[in-house]
Design a protein around this nucleic acid. Structure first.
Length: 646
DNA sequence: GAGCACTGC
């Protein structure tokens, strides 16, 4: 397909003219208008890739990078790795550094940040297009700030920002008055219908809406968006009850409800993506995975609860919380668009039109940059030569507290010196590792402590976000299986046993199923582990193993995680018999989360990977490591002796 | 008694 019928083709000439005349152009257009696949080809055909120069297009997600590269190559009659290439880590690299012949390259935003550490002026590129900029991921915001900086030294560099929403003005202003071009329309129209009154419970309202669609609307599958996994399972139960009720009345039970969320095994996810049996209507009950990451064919109706869950980092306590809040209009539009992929569809929003139009729903979500822990971003910027982080040209500046926290942690980790300059070699090496600074430091000290192999495994598991554990036949069974691997030293050390078992079982998916281990997560662990090993090897670190000795492993981890410490409270329980802890810094009351192998052990002092607020006054620690309290002052003397702390 | 979603040097 040539893409001639796509909405983007109507603005081709205008777009090319604007790119010629302006340093920066903002393109506004919804998903499906063809901008991602067509704009790079327009640029290619109009001379922007002449004489070995290149056009780069970035995406927030790796999966999209790979699939778009293949689609564009196919449209051009080229092969991936030839005229069209991509940069992605966990997939086989299809372009190499300098000698690549690709005219059009696709990469993730993250990969562009790392590319800029090696080639700050992006010398071979004439145009960089930042796609899906409205998603405002951490990496997107970093890329936008960096590109603006590069443009000052390379006035010839063209930047195209593509966004699905109307915050185009803000983006254009940030780039000193960029040109704006709008792409009207999508492939198919979607009718938007609103609730007449605000719903008292979005779960039952969503289920009622599904039932109404099933009774009154033409055939076509339904996709329902819920904020979280818990909502998905409740809705699933309600629809099954409804089906039972229909059966008893002798009605048709041709409604097929299917859950879809990140935490499910892939086989179950695929089930939700498969077409329903003939004459049945499929209802996919999903979290926001289906908003951007997964595409389901045959969806004609979308039901949107109009809520989403967002993670917030509190720099004062250094703890995170996950809150349910009204979704942004940008998400609402994206979700609705999922109904119009194959033919005109309908979207039922469970908020009122007044609520939508009066500003009760924000235009866009708070950018990740303003609700995240920033030590990794700060370290990256330092490595890119941005000396004064506070005065970096942020498109949305993070809070001063969050930046101070990040600088403080990086200083305590030894990545920055007294003057906040990157230390050498430690800070520079930490910046070269594709993991969070609290994980990079343990990896780097593992050489001296003789436990490189063990740290590679633990760091890989910590970096692969999806849990190593997976529900098999119920929570009880998972608990039972987990205990087979569990050790008193904690979750991180337990991972070593899981990894060992996985290798001894020759990476068998069946073994994983029987032991409630997530096969996909383990395969990713293998990939990340070998990637980390080549990075460490490149830094001159020699391989070693501590075998059955776990003390060096815990010590190495403590070198990175010391800031996340909590001690067992003397007044021991929360009323339900569970021990409470107090974070050493911040003095917040917290508990060991049920998912941890240590949730009954009550060690005196623990380090955690993350602590999340799970209730109004409840914080829980995920991934917990048992340590000796005197390690804290030993490993981070300044951190634990400053006034008012410790 | 159970955690939105992504990614990388």
């Amino acid at each position: 397909m040539e893409g001639g019928g796509l909405p983007i083709s109507r603005v081709r000439r205008e777009l090319l003219y604007l790119v010629e005349k302006n340093a920066t152009v903002v393109v506004v257009g919804h998903t499906g208008c063809g901008k991602t696949t067509q704009i790079p080809q327009y640029l290619h055909r109009s001379g922007w890739t002449a004489e070995g120069s290149k056009v780069l297009c970035t995406q927030p997600r790796e999966l999209v990078v790979v699939s778009v590269a293949h689609r564009v190559a196919e449209e051009m009659g080229a092969v991936v790795g030839g005229e069209v290439g991509y940069r992605a880590s966990s997939f086989e690299a299809r372009t190499d550094e300098g000698g690549s012949t690709s005219s059009i390259e696709f990469s993730t935003d993250e990969a562009l940040v790392s590319l800029m550490q090696r080639d700050p002026l992006l010398s071979p590129y004439t145009v960089v297009m930042v796609d899906e900029a409205h998603e405002r991921s951490l990496a997107t915001d970093v890329v936008l700030g960096l590109l603006k900086k590069v443009q000052r030294r390379r006035p010839d560099l063209r930047v195209i920002i593509s966004s699905a929403t109307i915050d185009a003005e803000a983006l254009a202003t940030f780039f000193g008055g960029a040109a704006i071009v709008s792409v009207e329309g999508t492939l198919h129209d979607v009718d938007i219908l609103y609730a007449k009154v605000p719903a008292s419970s979005y779960i039952s309202e969503a289920v009622d809406t599904v039932v109404k669609i099933h009774k009154n609307e033409r055939p076509g599958d339904v996709l329902v968006f819920f904020p979280g996994e818990e909502d998905v399972s409740q809705a699933l139960e309600l629809i099954e009850e409804q089906n039972d009720f229909e059966r008893q009345r002798g009605g048709a039970d041709d409604l097929v409800p299917l859950a879809l969320h990140e935490g499910m095994p892939t086989s179950k996810q695929l089930q939700a993506l498969r077409p329903a049996p003939r004459n049945h209507r499929k209802v996919v009950l999903s979290t926001s995975v289906a908003e951007t990451s997964l595409t389901i064919d045959g969806i004609a109706y979308v039901v949107d609860c109009c809520f989403q869950r967002e993670r917030y980092y509190d720099p004062i306590t250094s703890l995170e919380s996950v809150v349910t809040c009204p979704e942004s209009k940008a998400s609402a539009v994206q979700r609705a668009g999922r109904a119009g992929r194959v033919r005109p569809g309908k979207c039922f929003r469970l908020c009122t039109r007044e609520a939508y139009e009066s500003g009760l729903l924000p235009e866009s979500s708070v950018p990740e940059m303003q609700r995240s822990e920033l030590s990794h971003v700060v370290l990256q910027l330092k490595a890119l030569g941005v000396d004064n982080i506070m005065s970096f040209d942020w498109i949305a500046p993070p809070s001063a507290e969050a930046m101070v926290r990040a600088l403080e942690l990086l200083h305590a980790l030894g990545a920055l010196d007294q003057e906040s300059r990157l230390t050498s070699p430690l800070g520079a090496h930490m910046a070269e590792l594709p993991v969070h600074p609290t994980v990079a430091k343990p990896l780097l000290v593992s050489g001296e402590l003789g436990c490189v192999e063990e740290l590679l495994i633990v760091a890989a598991v910590m970096t692969v976000k999806s849990s190593v554990w997976q529900l098999g036949r119920g929570r009880k069974e998972m608990e039972r299986q987990k205990m087979k691997f569990a050790v008193a030293e904690g979750d991180h050390v337990t991972y070593l046993n899981v990894y060992k078992g996985f290798l001894e079982a020759k990476r068998s998916p069946g073994w994983c199923d029987r032991h409630c281990v997530n096969y996909n997560a383990m395969m990713k662990v293998l990939g990340v582990k070998s990637q980390l090993w080549s990075a460490l090897e490149g830094l001159g670190i020699k391989h070693s193993s501590s075998d059955k000795e776990t003390l060096p492993v815990r010590k190495a981890l403590a070198h990175g995680l010391f800031a996340n410490s909590a001690v067992l409270s003397s007044t021991s329980t929360d009323g339900k018999g569970r021990a409470t802890y107090t974070t050493v810094r911040g003095k917040v009351v917290t508990k060991v989360h049920e998912s941890s192998v240590l949730h009954r052990n009550q060690p005196k002092c623990v380090l955690y990977t993350r602590a999340i607020q799970t209730g109004p006054a409840t914080h829980e620690m995920f991934e917990v490591l048992a340590v000796e309290q005197d390690w804290l002052t030993e490993l981070a003397p300044h951190f634990y002796t400053s006034p008012g702390v410790g």
